[in-house]
Computed example of a mutant assay.
Amino acid sequence: MAAGGFSRLPNGKVVVALNLPRPTAAGSGSVRVIVHAHNRARALTRLRNLGMRAVYLRGNAAPPTPDEITAVLHHPDGLIWRTAPCDELPALEPMELWRPIRSLLRPPVARA
């Protein structure tokens, strides 16, 4: 379902990166989710427990970059996301900051 991959850290833990479709309540497009966990199965379980039921990691086609690994290791939750870059014009898009996962799953605020 999603492009992704993982990197094993020297301490035995892993960082998993997945490109997922954005939840419908949060808009359209796709997001890049980075998870720090003890192993790949626990990383996917963390996402499934948040309501992302159809999350699977098949292969290692898009492993996390060193910058993504650093970002998730420095985040207290160990679970972050940002909008996935567009494949057609990656150099023209400004890089977005990493956000905590709860901001993705929170329902949008209605503006009056």
Rank of each mutant, 00 (worst) to 15 (best):
residue 2 A to I: 04
residue 2 A to S: 14
residue 2 A to H: 03
residue 3 A to E: 08
residue 4 G to E: 04
residue 5 G to Y: 01
residue 6 F to L: 13
residue 7 S to T: 12
residue 7 S to D: 13
residue 8 R to A: 10
residue 9 L to Q: 08
residue 10 P to H: 00
residue 10 P to Q: 04
residue 11 N to M: 09
residue 11 N to L: 11
residue 12 G to S: 11
residue 12 G to K: 02
residue 13 K to E: 14
residue 13 K to N: 12
residue 15 V to I: 11
residue 15 V to Y: 00
residue 17 A to G: 08
residue 17 A to E: 08
residue 17 A to H: 05
residue 18 L to D: 01
residue 21 P to Q: 06
residue 21 P to E: 09
residue 22 R to P: 12
residue 22 R to W: 02
residue 23 P to T: 03
residue 24 T to N: 12
residue 24 T to A: 15
residue 25 A to P: 08
residue 25 A to G: 08
residue 26 A to L: 11
residue 26 A to H: 05
residue 28 S to K: 10
residue 29 G to C: 12
residue 30 S to A: 11
residue 30 S to I: 02
residue 31 V to W: 02
residue 31 V to F: 03
residue 31 V to R: 01
residue 33 V to F: 03
residue 33 V to I: 12
residue 33 V to D: 06
residue 34 I to L: 12
residue 35 V to E: 01
residue 35 V to P: 03
residue 36 H to T: 02
residue 36 H to S: 06
residue 36 H to A: 11
residue 37 A to G: 07
residue 37 A to S: 07
residue 39 N to Q: 08
residue 39 N to R: 06
residue 39 N to L: 09
residue 40 R to V: 13
residue 43 A to E: 00
residue 43 A to W: 00
residue 44 L to Y: 00
residue 45 T to F: 00
residue 45 T to R: 01
residue 45 T to D: 03
residue 48 R to T: 07
residue 49 N to D: 09
residue 50 L to T: 01
residue 51 G to H: 05
residue 52 M to C: 08
residue 52 M to E: 07
residue 53 R to N: 13
residue 53 R to G: 12
residue 54 A to K: 08
residue 54 A to G: 09
residue 56 Y to I: 13
residue 57 L to M: 07
residue 58 R to D: 15
residue 59 G to N: 08
residue 60 N to D: 15
residue 60 N to M: 15
residue 60 N to E: 14
residue 61 A to N: 12
residue 61 A to E: 14
residue 63 P to F: 06
residue 63 P to N: 07
residue 63 P to D: 08
residue 64 P to N: 02
residue 66 P to I: 02
residue 68 E to Y: 07
residue 70 T to E: 15
residue 71 A to C: 09
residue 72 V to R: 00
residue 72 V to T: 04
residue 73 L to M: 11
residue 73 L to D: 05
residue 74 H to A: 15
residue 75 H to A: 14
residue 75 H to S: 14
residue 75 H to V: 06
residue 77 D to M: 13
residue 77 D to L: 14
residue 78 G to C: 04
residue 79 L to W: 00
residue 80 I to V: 12
residue 81 W to V: 12
residue 83 T to D: 15
residue 83 T to C: 13
residue 84 A to G: 08
residue 86 C to V: 12
residue 86 C to R: 06
residue 87 D to R: 10
residue 87 D to I: 13
residue 88 E to F: 12
residue 89 L to N: 10
residue 89 L to C: 13
residue 90 P to Y: 02
residue 90 P to G: 10
residue 90 P to Q: 06
residue 92 L to T: 05
residue 93 E to A: 13
residue 95 M to V: 09
residue 96 E to S: 11
residue 97 L to Q: 04
residue 97 L to T: 05
residue 97 L to R: 03
residue 99 R to H: 14
residue 99 R to A: 14
residue 100 P to L: 09
residue 103 S to G: 05
residue 103 S to T: 15
residue 104 L to Q: 01
residue 104 L to A: 02
residue 105 L to R: 01
residue 107 P to Q: 00
residue 107 P to H: 00
residue 108 P to K: 04
residue 110 A to H: 07
residue 110 A to G: 13
residue 111 R to C: 14
residue 112 A to N: 05
